[in-house]
């Protein structure tokens, strides 16, 4: 099953663009975009087993920590930089996002929404939320940032970045009504003002 987010990202980018995927995991998204949009894709990934999976898919991957690996890329070398479900694991978000705009024109970010109603319910009941998109217990989660759709919009505004487009999803469909309350996940494309 192709995740809705993958299809949406593919529908929003042009054919043959270049994409750098930060925290590309096993390369599923890169592979999908390569087969659907013939992108020229590369990834950065820290887990050895995932790096192997990428190479076995024929992808170009840099076995590195996102926070240490970006200076290996020349300025203005990609159309898009992607951070799909990896931004919440990053320590120096501001620095990394600055680097993303040195390397690429547009940054596509996908993340789980911490303010989705079931998460709010959990917190109200006094528990750390565990959902399909935030599946970890507090003690084994790789996530170090917990934020919401509204948080991200405010962040982009505070840094003078332009939100080119955004989409929100429940488990099965796109959410348009009150996304910060009903969406499990969000994807944003942001860029620097011209």
């Amino acid at each position: 099953m192709i995740p809705l987010e993958y299809e949406k990202i593919a529908s929003m980018i042009k054919e043959n663009v270049s994409v750098l995927d930060l925290g590309c995991g096993r390369g599923d998204l890169l592979e999908y975009l390569t087969s659907t949009k013939h992108i020229n894709g590369q990834g950065i990934e820290i887990k050895e087993e995932a790096v192997f999976a990428c190479i076995e898919k024929g992808l170009t991957v840099f076995h590195s920590d996102i926070e240490k690996g970006l200076d290996a890329y020349p300025s203005n070398s990609f159309d898009y930089v992607l951070m799909y479900n990896s931004i919440q694991e990053i320590k120096n978000v501001d620095t990394i996002i600055k680097e993303c705009f040195r390397i690429g024109k547009t940054l596509i970010v996908g993340f789980p929404n911490f303010a989705q109603i079931s998460s709010r319910k959990s917190l109200l009941m006094g528990y750390t939320p565990i959902t399909k998109h935030l599946p970890f217990t507090w003690f084994n989660s790789p996530n170090i940032r917990f934020f919401t759709i509204r948080d991200f919009e405010n962040y982009a505004r505070s840094r003078g970045l332009v939100i080119e487009w955004s989409f929100f999803f429940s488990a099965k469909k796109e959410i348009k009504f009150l996304p910060n309350l009903f969406a499990y996940t969000a994807i944003f494309a942001i860029s620097k003002p011209q």
Partner: peptide, 14 residues
């Protein structure tokens, strides 16, 4: 790998 990437080449590192 970094030197190759910085010159715009397609380099995988593991």
């Amino acid at each position: 790998a970094r030197l190759l990437k910085l010159q715009g080449f397609d380099a995988t590192y593991c």
